[in-house]
Simulated assay, not measured.
Amino acid sequence: MDCRVVVEAAVPVYDVATADEAVRIAISKTGEMLNPDLNYVEINMGERVCPHCHETLDPAFIAADESLVALELEMTVFNVERDEHASRIARKEIGQRLTNIPLDIVEIEQLPDDEAESDEASDPDTPEGSDVLPEFEELIDE
């Protein structure tokens, strides 16, 4: 089974004046830490919601020219047994590169299996075991 795992990261950014600047720097900083080993991880702005009024907030919290930015890191994990297995692999892979940055699993989505599609794509009229190249005995007979 293959899964798409979304991990939330709290990335600290220093010497910033606006939330937009903090988000741009956090995405750049995270991309530098992940690349080139994990260049397949997608980096997106995280979504923060006020727990009281349920209003959407900026992904960056700024105080004293320092910011904490919520980012969502999305990756696909292949050949896992369960959702928990996929989340552990994603946290380990991302966590090894993003040292001292807290991570939290936001979403795990099972991807549809491609095995059924590949079975349908094979030609049922082709006998099993037929090869493109002739067998050794056929070459000797000629």
Rank of each mutant, 00 (worst) to 15 (best):
Y40M: 08
A60C: 07
M1C: 04
D15G: 09
E81H: 03
E84Q: 12
R88N: 13
P59T: 07
D15N: 15
E109S: 11
A121F: 15
L38E: 07
D125Y: 10
I101F: 02
C50I: 02
P102M: 05
E74N: 06
F78Q: 04
E42Q: 10
D83Y: 11
F136C: 01
M33S: 11
P12T: 08
A26E: 01
R88P: 00
E72R: 03
G129F: 03
I140T: 07
G46R: 01
D83A: 13
S122G: 00
D131H: 09
A26F: 10
V16D: 04
D15K: 11
E81D: 13
E142M: 04
V132P: 00
L68Q: 09
V13C: 11
L57T: 06
D15W: 08
E107N: 14
S130H: 03
A9C: 07
E42Y: 04
N39C: 12
D141L: 12
P36V: 09
S67V: 08
E135F: 12
L103Y: 09
L98H: 08
S67D: 04
P124I: 06
A9D: 04
N79L: 09
T18N: 05
I94T: 08
L57F: 08
I62L: 14
L68S: 12
D104T: 15
P12H: 06
F61M: 10
A116C: 00
I108K: 02
L73G: 02
N79F: 12
V5W: 03
I27M: 14
I43Y: 04
A90I: 11
R4N: 12
E117I: 13
V132C: 08
D58H: 11
I94N: 03
S67E: 05
C50S: 15
V6I: 10
R4P: 00
V69A: 03
D83Q: 10
R48A: 15
T18I: 05
N39A: 13
P127A: 13
A60R: 01
R91M: 14
G31E: 10
V5A: 08
E115H: 10
L34P: 04
E47L: 14
I62Q: 02
V106A: 13
V132A: 12
T76H: 11
F78K: 05
S67R: 01
I101W: 04
M45S: 14
A64N: 14
V5M: 08
M75W: 01
